[in-house]
């Protein structure tokens, strides 16, 4: 597929009623924006500051509206295209798909979302801490609808779903290859990087990391949880109308650094210190998620280090585990 054809394809999707979100190079950062002119869509190696996360797990979403004791059904999601997700971030899509497999709101969004991946991965360790490479067989362990492998100025097109095939066929493009998803775990077995960090963190509690270093530096701002493509913890709360007895039950992003995250009735907190909270964050990504679904809860995008106001760098922390 040529770049011209790709732009026509994006224009075709927009005409079909899809909202298309694509990364755009802005003066300071790359950010996802809603595409208005398909001719401006580009593939960018620099990953967007904010990942795709908010399109699938929004900062705030309505679970249902209530009026007295009647509750509304899950609403149909809008059709959206998330364009240009690289293989590092696609690993986060795979993880979220498993975490939210029984969640009707997430699944409704996924059902109405077209994911278009692409093969440009940053080489620098700050944005690719596990040095993920675009290699053979990587695609069969990722989930996407369409994937664009950059070949010089053109793209080789893969599909990963029937929906991906359907939109390409409707557009009139047939020169694609289908890849069957083989699950997140490679044939060779569990990811050795995952096993290494999981075992290290589970077996050793190093006071010098959690209490002496991170516990004294982290200011519990929670920026890392907002920016992380795999941080998905949430709160559920009601927002009643001021009059009339109706209202909504909402799900919002939660952050394990915040004071009330572990607070129970009566005021007791189970995560009391900064050290306990940052340990909980690392434990979730590197032990709990691997125990639960056998893949790492960190894709190595490095966004948390980039936004941390006190310079905590996940790459350096992992090296000390």
């Amino acid at each position: 597929m040529t770049h011209g054809e790709l732009q026509k394809f994006i224009g075709f999707l927009m005409k079909q009623g899809w909202k298309v979100f694509a990364p755009e190079k802005q003066p300071d950062e790359v950010r996802y924006v809603e595409v208005e002119d398909a001719a401006k869509v580009k593939l960018i190696t620099e990953p967007p500051l904010h990942s795709f996360k908010r399109f699938l797990v929004p900062p705030e979403e309505t679970l249902f509206e209530y009026k007295k004791d009647k509750m509304a059904e899950v609403k149909e999601a809008e059709r959206q295209v998330i364009f240009g997700i690289n293989p590092v971030d696609l690993k986060a899509v795979v993880m979220l798909n498993q975490i939210f497999e029984r969640d009707p709101w997430y699944q409704e969004k996924m059902r109405r979302t077209l994911i278009i991946g692409q093969s440009l991965i940053p080489e620098n360790v700050e944005q690719n801490i596990f040095q993920t490479e675009y290699e053979e067989n990587i695609l069969e362990h990722l989930q996407f609808d369409i994937f664009l492998e950059v070949q010089g100025k053109n793209y080789f097109v893969y599909t990963g779903s029937e929906e991906g095939q359907k939109v390409l066929e409707d557009f009139g493009y047939k020169n694609y290859e289908h890849i069957a998803y083989a699950g997140p775990i490679k044939e060779e077995g569990l990811d050795p990087i995952m096993v290494k960090y999981r075992d290290a963190l589970r077996k050793n509690y190093k006071k010098e990391i959690w209490e002496k270093d991170l516990g004294t530096r982290c200011i519990e701002c929670g920026k890392c949880t907002l920016i992380c493509p795999t941080c998905f913890c949430f709160d559920i709360k009601d927002q009643p109308d001021l009059v009339g007895g109706g209202g909504v039950r909402k799900r919002t992003w939660g952050a394990c650094f915040y004071n009330d995250f572990s607070e129970v009735a009566g005021g007791h907190k189970f995560l009391r210190t900064t050290a306990e909270r940052i340990h909980f964050w690392y434990y979730h990504k590197f032990v709990r998620i691997p125990d639960q679904i056998q893949i790492m809860g960190c894709v190595g995008c490095g966004r948390c280090a980039k936004v941390c106001p006190v310079g905590i760098n996940i790459f350096k922390v992992l090296a000390k585990l």
Partner: peptide, 19 residues
């Protein structure tokens, strides 16, 4: 064990203890 809970379904992570 007592913990804060939001979802009750093993997703929201408020009540996580170890794994």
């Amino acid at each position: 064990l007592e913990r804060r809970m939001h979802c009750g379904l093993g997703v929201c992570n408020h009540c996580a203890v170890g794994s």
